[in-house]
Amino acid sequence: MINKFNKKGQIASTITWVVAFLIIFFMIILFLAFTGLMAGQRQIPVLSFFYGAPDEINLEKYTAESLEVQQGLVRFLNTQTDFSGEKLKIKHLVFKDEAGINKLNEEAKLFVNEGIAAGKYERASIVLLSAEEKSSCILEEVTSEIFISSNKKIVLCVKLK
């Protein structure tokens, strides 16, 4: 009964709804298009605009250690050497007296010089440190350290070519 006498109000209400529907519909279409666009991309366009392409990977900066350098150090430590008529692995020289340490330093020098002569390293050094000591390698050098006893470690610092 009320509606029968309020026809204009009814039409107005419907028109409002239709307009509202169109607006919401348009917004959802936009949402759909935007999500579809994003789904196939690797980056968020808005963020990319401000921060640069986040999928770009610069490897040079992030390789602080080198697998090859470490494997070289392990090979060096497992190399057999003659020490006072005994056949010993280089890593075991630290368990000998001072002469053993001197022999280790000699072998280290040879290893480093071979690496430089072979063109693998620009410069390199091997030092024997106690477990708590920090290596003195400089920032541009690749560091590799291996513990050879409970309180001793061998550190190889290499500036790669």
């Binding site: 789904a39 196939g40 991309q41 690797r42 999928d55 990977i57 080198s66 494997q71 392990v74």
Partner: peptide, 22 residues
Amino acid sequence: SKGIEATIADSRFIDNLYIKED
């Protein structure tokens, strides 16, 4: 959709992990 895809062809990226494994 396929989502985010990135191919990392250079193994140096995971060198640090291989170093720890070694």
